[in-house]
Amino acid sequence: MRTAIVGAVLLVLGGIAVATGLLPVPEAVELWDRVWPILLFVVAITVVTELAAEAGVFTVLAQQTARWGRGRAWVLWLLVVVVAALSTIFLSLDTTAVLLTPVVIVMARHAGLNPLPFALTTVWMANAGSLLLPVSNLTNLLAQHAMGDPTPAAFAALMLAPALVAMIVPMVVVFVIARKSLLVRYETGEEDGIEDRVLFWISGAVVVALVPLLVSGLPVWLPTSIATVVLGVVFLVRRRSVLRFGLVPWQLVLLASGLFLFIEALHAAGLATLMATVSGTGESPLALLRLSLTGLVGANAIDNLPAYLALEPVADSPARLAALLIGVNAGPLITPWASLATLLWHQRLTSFDVEIRWSRYMLLGLIVAPVTVVLATLALSATV
């Protein structure tokens, strides 16, 4: 409920900005045109994952992964690291946050392990691991265009060193802080039977079909909306009691709507100009660090996408664009609103009754985000 309250307050503040003329109505309408596909995707993908979880899809995936771990928690964790990295690189950070988080939670519980290290691995890899390919993050696609549309291979060549650093540093931190939970053995436990095999196989097929469609070039809201309708009809026929209003993440939608409107009002008030002023110029190691750290601060203050858009005009070379991406991709590990992936991840945790205090999350992020961004930027400066 606190999420909904914060979202409502931000919507009111944004509404005041529109009513007073601080945020012109045409700009608010343009914002809505950009935002509604994102919000529709959030609703659709959340409903799909909820229904797939009800059908037992994630339970079966988790059980299989637990068997591959062969009773060693650290091996199981490394499997999660690899899968999260591949999912983020090839399918995008939002897909990792939404689809992988339920799997790792169910997997950890099935093995009798603490799910928090696995969940933290997922969200940190989803953000920090999204540097390598254009499809990994929407900011990358924008930067690719600003670079003159290099091929994915050329883009990856530029980003390879910082991407590796950005993936490794947070995972080292996770292992260090969770080593007592990971250096243990586990029993896989008994297999959970599938209650309805028709539901299971149809839900599994929908999820499998959905994954490539998310990177097919189609607007992501379209295949996820179709998947929602398909699963909704199947559940209506076979397990109607599952279909309820609570499947819709209305609190998250309210918060995201409020954030988008409030951030746009801040832009109109001159925040973008201020950020551009402090980001500096040049391609020396210190200049690139200044830009990436400005991106880090901006992402955690106002969300990574508007932070990127605010700073793109001063990132006037491939090296500076790469530094900016390091800041806005690997840096959003501190505040809950720093990226949509983090909000989606937390909504998945809540739906599975896994609690993590935002104060603890932010404290850990304050430690790992600056170190990751600085080291990744130094790796960039050593290779350009």
Rank of each mutant, 00 (worst) to 15 (best):
L296S: 10
W358S: 07
M275W: 02
L291T: 00
V278H: 05
R360G: 01
P336Q: 13
L296T: 12
L293K: 08
L289H: 05
L286M: 11
G270A: 12
T277L: 09
P306C: 10
L343C: 11
A315F: 02
T273P: 00
V278E: 10
R357E: 14
S279H: 09
D316C: 02
S279N: 06
L324I: 13
V278T: 08
H346E: 14
A276Q: 15
V297A: 13
Q347P: 00
T335Q: 03
H346D: 14
P318G: 02
T281I: 05
L349T: 09
S292L: 06
T281K: 13
L274P: 00
T281A: 12
D303F: 00
A287K: 04
P285E: 13
F352G: 09
P306I: 13
S292F: 01
W345A: 01
W358A: 14
F352D: 08
A299M: 03
R320H: 03
L293V: 12
G282H: 00
I334T: 07
G327T: 14
L288K: 03
G298F: 04
P306R: 14
W358G: 01
L289R: 05
E283P: 00
L296F: 12
S292W: 02
A310T: 07
L366W: 01
V314L: 03
S339N: 10
T350R: 15
L325I: 15
L325C: 11
L311M: 13
E283C: 03
I367N: 03
G327L: 13
G327I: 14
D303I: 01
M275G: 08
R348V: 07
I326E: 05
L274E: 07
N329S: 09
Y361P: 00
A338L: 03
E312H: 05
L271M: 10
A310F: 02
A310D: 07
A319I: 04
A287P: 00
T281S: 15
W358C: 08
L349C: 09
V278S: 06
L340E: 03
L305P: 01
L293S: 04
Y361K: 05
Q347W: 04
L286R: 13
L286A: 14
T281N: 04
N304M: 03
E355D: 15
L349Q: 10
A341S: 10
W337R: 11
L286P: 00
A276D: 07
T294W: 02
A315T: 12
W358P: 01
G331W: 09
H346K: 14
L363C: 04
I334R: 14
A307F: 02
V328W: 04
